[in-house]
Amino acid sequence: MIKHRVILYQALIIVLLSQVLSSCSFCSRQDVDLSQELIVPDSVIQNSTPQVSKAITDQMMQNISSPVETAALIKGLKIPFNKNFLASTKQADWFNTNFEKAFALGLYGCDLGYLNMYEKTSFVVDYISVIKRLADDIQVGQFFDFSTLKRLATNNENLDSLILISQQSFNRIDTYLSETNRSMLSAVIVTGVWVEGAYLSSRVAQISNHPKIRETIGEQKVILNFLLALLKVYDNDPSMAKLITDFEPIKKLYDQVHITYELGEPEMIEENGVVTFKQTDKQVIEMDDELYNKLITNIQELRSNLLKL
């Protein structure tokens, strides 16, 4: 009887310890001294691809390309909505491997951002259905709040929540993939978002001469350098190596784009209790028309190639 009690007490202690350790989410963060690892951004805007550690790439994934910002920039130029810019949901069946599905997830995620921004809820259900299916296929469907999104879209209610929940779903997917050592798929999702965002911008560039869209195309050089730095972390994977190769032509073109900066001191303005810091740095992008047009064509070719069109 005493022996049984000792065994039970030992079991109790083990259970307690394992619970305490598993609930200590912060403990794992202390493994990485981020303050030492983050001094990299200067090199990122150079032509050479920066070396970035995996700890950093895991954190940067979500921020590299955002469907919300891209769509907002396009909408801000008063460019009308165009359904033809988007990838057809019928093409979702063409993606077979987890790698391809992750890419498609990012791509349709970007399209969802565009639809949400233009409040085209009638198309949203189609896209969230495809996204949910792709997310299920790569075992992250539980983080995509399909039922809430469907309700919001169907009832045309609270469109801000539609954007919020879409974004949060993708952030949770990213976090989960990172926690389960599948960060490579996160990188592929981000690639899908970037390719579709760049494609949307390129389509807009063909119908608008607005200098901002020209600048948006040009500054993709900065984002692309980040993206390639992330992808190269996983270049021992054959699918990733091929993806990086697919980016080579556009990388060579972007190497010809010159971006320079004039630094200034930020200005702080306080109005009605709201503090706004206004950056005064200037970004100057130099590229001739020929290069600009080549970039547009190349972005579209890259997307067609990756979409198997």
Partner: peptide, 16 residues
Amino acid sequence: DYPYIDWVCTKTGAYH
């Protein structure tokens, strides 16, 4: 101390 601040960005790039 402010619960939020706004930032007008004029340079695409990496920030911390």
